[in-house]
Amino acid sequence: MAIVYDKLLNWSFPDLEHRYTAKDTILYALGLGCGIDPLDRGDLAYVYEAGLKVLPSMAVVLGYPGFWLKDPATGADWVKVLHGEQSIRIHVPLAPSGTVIGRSKVDAIVDKGPGRGALLYSSRRIIDKASGTLLATVSQTTFLRGDGGFGGPSGPVKEPFAVPDDRAPDLVAARRTAANTALIYRLSGDFNPLHADPDVAAKAGFKAPILHGLASLGVATRALVDAVAGNDPTRLKALDLRFTAPVYPGETIATEIWRTDEAAVFAFRGRVVERDLICLGNGRVEIAQA
């Protein structure tokens, strides 16, 4: 079955109500490796209910519609789907608990041609159920590797943010993940067996289950909040990045950060220290002034 452009572009998503508690917020942070060092008081704020803080990247797991492209009616070859890029916009800081509505939609589909696949741009608005306040908008680019040549538009294609490659980073913040990080992170809602079952990982060509891309994003977010926002997660206003390589649980992600001409904007990328490999690229983060 092939993609039908109009059908996929107008895919209907029901509003998804999501109630979460302080326990869910703590579990999300534990799934990023927060608390590996029990004496790290900066991390403690995200994994201990007394004065609990919320990492802004938690928006990616709220109101999540699941792996909807696996539905045969989409026409997509779901086995070849890759998560390419992710953006987060925080409009109001997230509370440690609450009930939200996730409202998803497909924004655009770009046909790159036969043999080249397609790009699907989608977004989700996360709305506080009680007040109707828009809390966050999360957007992603999905690469449909097996679905080009269906006769859709060839553009526009989102241009990635350029990270400086002519000078060393101004700051580097390294954070180690634990060997069981993926097994914890999946409890926040992404149960793809690729991140848990060694046999599934081997069939996909990996030596072991890999860390979720959005977990790698969360690790970088935690590093950025600490390095450029004074460990105040409410100051992070926006974040964009591209996924460039998988991370294995237990590896260390070094977030390399550059100042830009805009005082409130930093460029960044993530490097797997053990393999000297870029896992997150084209990163941009916007921080509110203190």
Rank of each mutant, 00 (worst) to 15 (best):
M1E: 12
A2G: 01
L9M: 04
S12G: 10
E17I: 14
H18E: 10
H18W: 08
K23H: 07
D24E: 06
L27N: 03
A29T: 05
A29S: 08
L30W: 01
L30I: 00
I36P: 01
P38A: 10
D40M: 05
A45D: 15
A45Q: 15
Y46S: 12
Y48S: 09
A50R: 13
L52H: 05
S57E: 11
V60I: 05
F67T: 13
W68V: 14
W68P: 12
W68Y: 15
P72Q: 00
G75L: 02
W78C: 11
V81A: 14
H83G: 09
E85Q: 12
I88K: 09
L94R: 09
S97P: 00
V100Q: 08
R103S: 04
S104P: 06
D107E: 04
D111R: 00
G115Y: 10
G117A: 12
R125N: 11
K129L: 12
K129R: 15
A130K: 14
L135N: 00
L144R: 03
R145G: 05
D147H: 04
G148L: 00
G151D: 13
S154W: 10
G155P: 13
P156I: 07
V157H: 11
K158Q: 15
F161D: 10
D166C: 03
V172Q: 14
A174G: 10
T177K: 08
T181D: 13
A182I: 04
A182N: 12
I184W: 05
H195I: 07
P198S: 00
D199K: 01
K203N: 07
L214M: 08
L214R: 07
L214Q: 07
V225W: 04
D226P: 01
D226S: 07
A229E: 01
G230D: 08
N231H: 15
P233D: 15
L236E: 01
F243K: 02
F243G: 03
T244L: 07
P249H: 05
G250F: 03
I253Y: 07
T255L: 09
E256F: 03
A263Q: 14
V265W: 14
G270S: 11
G270W: 04
D276Q: 14
N282K: 09
G283I: 00
E286L: 10
A288N: 12
A290N: 15
